[in-house]
Design a protein around this nucleic acid. Structure first.
Length: 503
RNA sequence: UCCCCGAUAGCUCAAUCGGUAGAGCGAGCGGCUGUUAACCGCUAGGUCCUAGGUUCGAAUCCUAGUCGGGGAGCCA
């Protein structure tokens, strides 16, 4: 057996040579005198072809019954083969089994989310998870690249913190040698002081929120990157944010096209992610939501859903007739039965959307200026645009104390949310910070906080205060949006959800 | 915290009106020289979530509980 160990991702450079692959059995099909083993090595997949006539009979026999996820090494000649996954194939000449496996729990058939979460340590090996992990890696690298290339300095802010960024009820409290502290839900306040030292800074790390939110957009532990810039206004922040998000999308398109294709991501729509993004004020967003455009949009959406439901129901009826009839072979019936199960699941999701549509219409129509935008409102706005949307200038009362009051309209603050397109929703929240001492202390008191707890934060408004601001981008939400993944729990290796920490 | 849905083989799901438990995959054995979630034959595999109740009879109906999924509020 050759010692020329090559990773599958590098096979293109070794066509015609003898190489050694080290990995795990992803799929094994034996056909009497021929075995196809798809091997997985962490860098990709490669089909190995093992012919009985040119192989040690004992090893051939062992290989023919080798279970999924057995670890093995296999050597042979690399050749281009368009029929094969990845485009290359190994004509195997020798193999060694490292650890045979039987009864691997995650089979090539479908599994429920609960089962997969309980087997998360194994699920990471699955192709879908692997692709998401690769995209996440690129997203994180692109985030660091963007800030490092644009003059930002990394500041690591503490995880044990003494002050809250926003609402106090959403913090995890920890016992810090008898003193109550909590886990960071933002690095922003610390970052503001660093921005006065370095001009442009960012922090990047895990963030903790004790929100009792059981939705596809929430984790209790997630990763967030937060830039903070001195001497900047709201238009300046929006410009950074749109360049930033566009650079992430471009990097993922460049580095992970194969993964995006496997995941079924909407690549053409990602290619549209370029500055400028759409800019709406909160007031304009409210006008859209309460206006005829939204009602028409939702009515049209409902019609589309209903047409889809009709199609699905017809298809299910057709397949059910096939299963009940006499004319088909058993395997055709089995296949149809499996398809019925999939369609029923889809139908259930569609029914939920049909049920929610009128509720969302009412929520949007009844929206009153002053409330924060709800999840469904954000979804509607983002579905109406094929680029990310900035919504700016929210009502002051709905937002955090540190956001800068608009000097031309003191009912609103200079903040913004960035809504990803296709209905995914918010991926960025940010603002210009209140830089006047008197206004800030007034806001702190108005919120009922004790100004003493904010002494050092208020100092920043005493000693050379300047207009400044920043934003936070959620990594898992960004990955979910880019990959088309519905739930962000798939976008982090070991998710922490409300009331649920499996591994 | 509130609303909706669900729990049947290792996994994904069936089971008509309440009549005594089925299929695919996976596992084991056999067959097949180009398979793509391969295919064909055979074998093993069940405390129908738990506790009560209705009934001659409950996977199926009722009550309570447990666990899970989806959504709302809130947010990245």
């Amino acid at each position: 057996m050759t010692n020329n160990h090559v990773r599958i991702s590098q096979l293109k450079d070794h066509i015609g040579s003898e190489v050694l692959l080290k990995g795990w059995v992803y799929q094994n099909r034996s056909s009497g005198k021929l075995i196809f083993i798809v091997i997985r090595d962490g860098s990709g997949l490669c089909q190995c072809v093992i012919e009985k006539t040119s192989f040690n009979p004992e090893i051939f026999d062992q290989l023919s019954r080798l279970g999924q996820e057995s670890s093995m090494m296999i050597s042979g000649l690399v050749r281009a083969e368009p029929r094969s996954i990845g485009g290359y194939e190994l004509a195997a000449t020798d193999a060694a089994i490292v650890c045979p496996t039987t009864d691997y729990p995650i089979t090539p058939k479908s599994h429920g989310i609960d089962f997969l979460m309980k087997h998360r340590h194994l699920h990471l090996r699955s192709q879908r998870q692997w692709c998401i992990g690769k995209v996440r890696h690129t997203v994180i690298d692109a985030i660091r690249r963007f800030f490092n290339d644009n003059g930002f300095t990394l500041i690591d802010t503490p995880i044990f913190t003494t002050i809250a960024g926003e609402g106090e009820q959403t913090l995890f409290e920890v016992d810090y040698f008898g003193r109550p502290l909590h886990l960071a839900q933002t690095g922003q306040l610390y970052l503001e002081s660093a921005a006065m030292a370095y001009g442009k800074v960012y922090c990047f790390g895990p963030t903790f929120r004790a929100e009792k939110s059981k939705t596809r957009r929430h984790l209790t532990e997630f990763w967030m990157v937060e830039p903070e810039v001195a001497y900047i206004d709201l238009p300046g922040l929006l410009e950074i944010a749109e360049n930033f998000v566009s650079s992430i999308a471009a990097r993922v398109l460049a580095d992970n096209r194969a993964e995006l294709e496997f995941l079924g991501a909407d690549i053409p729509s990602l290619e549209k992610i370029k500055p400028p993004f759409v800019r709406l004020t909160y007031t304009q967003a409210v006008e859209i939501l309460t206006g005829p455009r939204t009602q028409e949009f939702l009515a049209k959406q409902l019609q589309e859903f209903q047409a889809q439901r009709k199609n699905m129901e017809d298809k299910i009826a057709e397949l059910e007739a096939l299963v009940a009839g006499q004319s088909s072979k058993q395997w055709q019936k089995d296949k149809a039965a499996a398809e019925i199960i999939d369609l029923r699941t889809e139908l259930e999701e569609l029914n939920a959307r049909i049920e929610n549509n009128p509720k969302h219409a009412v929520l949007a129509a009844d929206f009153r200026w002053g409330k924060d935008l709800g999840g469904s409102d954000e979804t509607i706005i983002s579905l109406m645009h094929d680029k990310p949307v900035f919504v700016t200038h929210y009502p002051k009362d709905a937002k955090a104390f540190y956001m800068r009051t608009d000097r031309t309209n003191d009912k609103v603050v200079e903040n913004f949310d960035c809504l990803a397109p296709a209905g995914f929703g918010e991926i960025i929240g940010g603002s210009v910070r209140e830089d006047e001492y008197d206004r800030l202390i007034e806001r702190i008191k108005h919120e009922g906080y004790n100004p003493e707890g904010y002494d050092w934060y208020l100092d920043l408004r005493k000693y050379g205060s300047v207009p400044h601001g920043g934003f936070g981008l959620g990594v898992e939400r960004t990955v979910a949006w880019l990959t088309g993944e519905k739930h962000i729990r798939q976008c982090i290796a070991f998710p922490r959800m409300m009331d649920k920490v499996v591994i």
